[in-house]
């Protein structure tokens, strides 16, 4: 009896629509996040992540609506990240039907946000999203630096130290995104996963770099509790079920759908 490795598709949404193109033959509306969520649920996704990439707050209402409709359609956990700056933002998302929320830049700028959210709602709702990159020979002990603004801005902060601090403040899960691997489809950054696992006592979700079936198992072997991917799923290049079969064949526990 062991908890299963979770396989999590991530959807970028703005203005109530999925941003990156999708190529699913059986989709009625490839741009509708709710429809995508329904398909992924049916395919065996263990959880869904929505990343709200909306820059301005006035179109954020559409995100609440998407969360609301998704929670009414699928019955698996839903994490929503992007632009969360306050306890009030979290409350609204939870009430709309999110189970977890992800914070990133706002927590880097003001770490007390983590204490405030976990005091109000508990650690289990709070995911810290960390966009990290390799910075060898720059005096950062772990060799990985926290970035903001989609990897464009370095903070000079050690990713491992930041994760330890955040867990101490009450984060319940880490979403570790390698900015070097992101978009390359060349595999997860296994060194980054292993370095994080060594210091991280909360669940660890690996993100960035998944390109083929063989990429997932090493991420789990390196210490990830869950694997997240976007484009390989959206373009139908890989199916959730095949990833689970591959993980299961390697001896990792996975959740199979009821037949």
């Amino acid at each position: 009896m062991t908890v299963a490795v979770r396989v999590i598709p991530c959807l970028d949404v703005t203005g109530g629509r999925v941003v990156k193109g999708v190529n699913f033959v059986d989709l009625r509306d490839a741009g509708d996040p709710v429809e995508m969520a329904r398909i992924y649920d049916a395919e065996g996704a263990d959880e869904l992540t929505f990343l709200d990439i909306t820059a301005s707050s006035d179109v954020r209402e559409t995100t609440y609506e998407v969360v609301r409709r998704t929670a009414e359609t699928v019955f698996i956990p839903l994490t929503v990240g992007g632009g969360i700056r306050s306890v009030r933002d979290v409350d609204r998302l939870l009430r709309a039907g999110a189970d977890k929320v992800g914070v990133n830049t706002a927590a880097v700028l003001r770490p007390e946000l983590i204490d405030e959210i976990s005091a109000e709602f508990g650690s289990q709702v709070l995911v810290l999203s960390v966009d990290a990159r390799r910075v060898p020979g720059q005096g950062i002990p772990s060799g990985f630096e926290v970035t903001t603004h989609g990897g464009r801005t370095g903070t000079g902060r050690d990713a491992s130290a930041w994760i330890c601090e955040a867990v101490g403040r009450g984060v319940g899960e880490i979403l570790l995104n390698s900015m070097d691997a992101d978009g390359t489809r060349a595999g997860y950054d296994l060194d980054m996963i292993a370095a994080t696992r060594a210091v991280c006592s909360v669940p660890l979700v690996a993100s960035g770099g998944a390109g083929q079936l063989a990429d997932f198992e090493p991420a789990v072997a390196a210490g990830a509790d869950a694997v997240l991917a976007a484009s390989v799923f959206h373009f139908g290049q890989l199916r959730i079920a095949e990833v689970k079969v591959a993980l299961g064949a390697a001896g990792h526990p996975v959740r199979r759908l009821r037949t």
Binding site: M1, R6, S123, Q124, G172, S201, V202, D225
Partner: peptide
């Protein structure tokens, strides 16, 4: 447990 919270899909007896 080594990793807490216990988060994910588990079996029961």
């Amino acid at each position: 447990a080594p990793v807490v919270p216990h988060m994910g899909w588990n079996t029961v007896a």
